[in-house]
Design a protein around this nucleic acid. Structure first.
Lengths: 198, 198
DNA sequence: CTGACACGTTAACCTAGGTTAACGATCGCC
DNA sequence: GGCGATCGTTAACCTAGGTTAACGTGTCAG
């Protein structure tokens, strides 16, 4: 079986959801993508690292997190298959990333180097359009999360999490979910108990 | 004096901070921009409205806010001169906005209709690049705010607000600042008292 | 000038969630 | 098999911030 080829098709389908990309460009791009396997608990990008690659998740599950001044672990987002993965601003600006990206499950990625990314952007403006639409989506995602913090309590945020990420509940350890909700594992345990009793 | 022309130059300077835009395109764009004055407390865009315009702030101050299920007022962001202003996702997708944009001071804008925006985007890919970079910046801004909610208490968020928006403290009523921090005016008053005593 | 109203402050009380610690359960690993 | 280490739960206690309400001040309309 041609594994790599099926992966490229998987990514292609996702790219085309955003905008038209000529076959010629897709082919050029396909030549740049490198297969990467990340074991469970290993890091795709670490804190302080200047990221030189972005990825497209073929399978598996990641979490993006950082460590607060008090040494507490806070999760920004979870990402599974068919999503792009990068320490975005650090990648584009060539600065050290303040957050890490860790595999929660054994995962497979297609990777693109910064160099190739820049080549793509210069070669055809369709990539510019793609990135614009993609970042717009990221922005809207963050707006929703901001809204959650501004006007929902932890229990409501937990319910929102459950419904926006169906199935993640079983794949993600509870203390990581707490870390994503901005509460302690103890508090999440209490919330689950209370909700279960309704 | 040619007021309108000085406004256009002001916007041009801001546009060029993001990327190169050919003079020809700047001239085309200048022809599309319409002057709009918004009185204090009036809305640039209201909740539920399908926004048909975006703006560039020449002078004044706005806040972007929504109303929670419990009828509480929550502020997403404040914006002053030299920033672009829109209910972004709603503008692009043609859907009703879930938040409103209100002038806190008498303000002056240059406005662009959705139609002209789309024309610009199709006419030259430099606008695509501009929007991509601009949204990237918005995204990074939201990431910082997310980080605040995840790992800072209200007093720290207040201090962060003071240092990231110098001068806003005097221009914005305190209950709007509380609304931005995600706390009640009472809580903000307590925090200010405690901080003042140090 | 005056009454109404919007705004900030303060106090008293309440609640969601943090902190610490103890206790099982599970899962490697030797 | 046993022995830690990691994870979730529960309980006891603590604190930041919410809620309500009272009070002062400034502002503006009449």
């Amino acid at each position: 079986m041609d594994e790599r080829n099926s992966y490229l098709l998987q990514m292609r389908a996702e790219l085309l959801r955003y905008c038209d990309i000529p076959d010629e460009e897709l082919r050029r791009n396909a030549g740049m993508m490198q297969l990467l396997r990340v074991e469970k608990n290993r890091y795709f990008i670490d804190i302080g690292e200047v990221p030189d690659k972005m990825g497209f998740i073929i399978s598996g599950l990641f979490r993006v997190f950082y460590i607060t001044e008090d040494g507490i672990d806070r999760t920004l987002v979870f990402r599974e298959k068919n999503h792009f993965l990068s320490a975005f601003s650090a990648f584009l600006e060539g600065t050290p990333s303040w957050y890490a990206i860790q595999a929660i499950e054994e995962s497979v990625l297609l990777c693109l180097t910064l160099q190739d990314y820049n080549r793509m952007m210069e070669h055809n403006s369709c990539w510019n359009t793609f990135v614009r639409k993609y970042v717009e989506e990221l922005f809207i995602e963050k707006e929703k999360r901001e809204r959650g913090f501004l006007s929902e309590d932890a229990a409501t945020r937990y319910l929102t999490f459950l419904s926006s990420y169906p199935g993640f509940e079983e794949r993600i350890p509870q203390h990581y979910i707490a870390s994503y909700l901005g509460i302690t594992p103890v508090a999440l345990s209490r919330i689950r108990k209370k909700l279960g009793k309704i």
